[in-house]
């Protein structure tokens, strides 16, 4: 006689925490580099005041919320209305792959790892920003896997901004 048991799946805490940490760093990095990098500034200039963007792991999070306020980008905890642009990872494994970063955004999108809700043009702008942010954060050998072409940034500038971010920027957020 077979016994029928219901199965209540648990949570993957380790990966959830890793994703959360990476999201916090990414959010900080976006906030910092959006004030230091002209190309990112220019992409953001086209976003309306009060624009919100989220990175979210379905179904329970973690989640990263980014807001444009006073002409600047900053990360926020919660907002009332629905974000205008959502990048939803279909599950925590997919999010882990892309955030850690073992897989780039184009590859991830090709493999249906996440879906985008909202204005596609802004999503394209966001991926261009992300490319630059990742180029500041990670060395070339990592970047090569993550993007189709590493943005051309002056070597000295890239190094000094990276140093700045990991020492001062990550703390002060500006």
């Amino acid at each position: 006689m077979s016994s029928i048991k219901s199965y209540k799946p648990g949570r993957k805490w380790f990966k959830t925490i890793v994703c959360k940490v990476v999201m916090v760093i990414l959010g900080r990095a976006f906030q910092v580099f959006s004030r230091h990098d002209h190309e990112i500034k220019n992409e953001i200039a086209a976003w309306p005041e009060g624009f919100t963007l989220e990175l979210n792991v379905l179904p329970f999070g973690p989640r990263l919320l980014i807001l444009k306020e006073d002409g600047k980008i900053r990360t926020v905890g919660e907002i009332d209305e629905k974000p205008e642009l959502s990048v939803n990872f279909k599950n925590i494994e997919s999010a882990f792959l892309i955030l850690t970063p073992l897989m780039g955004v184009p590859r991830g999108f090709a493999e249906h790892r996440f879906i985008v809700i909202g204005d596609v043009a802004k999503a394209m702008a966001f991926t261009r920003c992300l490319n630059r942010i990742l180029a500041y954060l990670y060395p070339d050998f990592l970047c090569r896997n993550l993007m189709r072409r590493i943005p051309e940034i002056n070597f000295m500038k890239r190094m000094s901004k990276r140093l700045y971010f990991y020492t001062i920027g990550i703390v002060t957020g500006s």
Binding site: K41, N42, A45, D70, G71, K72
Partner: peptide, 8 residues
């Protein structure tokens, strides 16, 4: 222009 716009 963008600089002025973001600085209000």
């Amino acid at each position: 222009l963008n600089l002025n716009n973001s600085a209000n």
